[in-house]
């Protein structure tokens, strides 16, 4: 059943992404990309590797986190209840079947699309690599700081706390979705909301690079707002978590801009960056040279007369 759901989500997100590429990025840019592809990928690969590592560590820590957090973490459910009380219940006061449907779909499909699309879109933007670099670093910071918070703070979301009279709308409306969300996160990892922080990060980036893809700003802003609202509307997060997510988004983006700024190219940050990138670059360059050589020898075998070119 969960496999069926994953396939479903993958197909929907792939379709949305394709649609986005055709409209937001544009056919011209897609056509011209293959010529630049290898160079673009080589330059951005170390960033993607970093993000991959952060995600792996993040996943490991999120699963390990809760049992560890119960021993060392700060239990803040009661503090959040005392702080905001019935806010989420008030949000749910406006519930309507259409809204529930909209927010459920946004929470799962919209959010994943929101994460996947900009990475691809900025990767395709060969004029300037800064948007892609900033996006990847900002994602990494979000996940890194987020998981640290999950270990330090342990709290249940509003749907788990009946005293605030909030429904777990997502799971009553669409019980199967919990099969996916439970795989991804534990129910005590709510502060801050990574749904909110990543969505805001993307919307902020879209604003910062609004000249790059002009239609992406309104789309991402609408989606980010919807995703953040959905976390509360569906009873998953507190307003406190969403505000914390907003702060985390600002911090992560500022951090990413600072870290990737050309001003720091000659400073220690730049030096560390180059050092790290060499770790990835050397094996990747070697591998790509080997592939190219193989490709050439294959071609020469076919034509069988021309001697292999020397580099």
């Amino acid at each position: 059943m969960i496999r069926h759901l994953i396939v479903d989500v993958t197909l929907v997100v792939a379709f949305l992404t394709l649609l986005g590429l055709l409209t937001v990025v544009g056919v011209d840019r897609l056509r011209s990309f293959p010529a630049m592809a290898s160079e673009q990928l080589r330059l951005l690969l170390p960033y993607l590797v970093l993000l991959g590592l952060v995600l792996v560590v993040n996943d490991f820590l999120r699963n390990l986190g809760p049992s560890f957090s119960w021993i060392v973490g700060w239990r803040i459910t009661e503090d959040i209840v005392a702080l905001e009380g019935g806010f989420v219940a008030t949000v749910q006061g406006y519930s309507h079947p259409w809204l529930t449907h909209y927010f459920s779909v946004t929470y799962i499909y919209g959010y994943i699309f929101l994460l996947v699309f900009p990475i691809l879109a900025y990767l395709l933007y060969t004029d300037d690599r800064r948007p892609a670099r900033e996006a990847v670093i900002a994602y990494s910071l979000n996940y890194g700081i987020g998981v640290l918070c999950y270990i330090l703070f342990i709290a249940y979301g509003p749907r788990n706390v009946p005293e605030v009279h909030v429904d777990g709308l997502l799971y009553t409306y669409w019980p199967e979705s919990q099969l996916i969300t439970r795989e991804l996160n534990a129910n005590v990892n709510v502060f801050p909301s990574l749904h909110a922080s990543l969505s805001f990060t993307i919307a902020f980036l879209a604003y910062r690079w609004r000249e790059v893809y002009r239609w992406w700003l309104p789309i991402s802003a609408l989606l980010a707002l919807s995703v953040s609202l959905s976390t509360m509307y569906l009873g998953i997060h507190w307003a406190t978590d969403v505000v914390a997510g907003l702060v985390l988004a600002a911090v992560s983006l500022a951090g990413a801009i600072w870290l990737t700024s050309p001003d720091r190219h000659d400073g220690p940050v730049g030096a560390i960056g180059r050092h790290l990138r060499r770790l990835v670059d050397v094996p990747v360059l070697a591998a790509s040279r080997r592939v190219r050589a193989l490709y050439r020898s294959f071609r020469t075998d076919k034509s069988s007369s021309v001697p292999p070119e020397t580099e």
């Binding site: 799971y171 019980p175 919990q178 099969l179 969300t181």
Partner: peptide, 10 residues
């Protein structure tokens, strides 16, 4: 399964 509701779906 994550919940009673989900268990009925499963």
């Amino acid at each position: 399964v994550p919940s009673h509701q989900a268990s009925v779906e499963v």
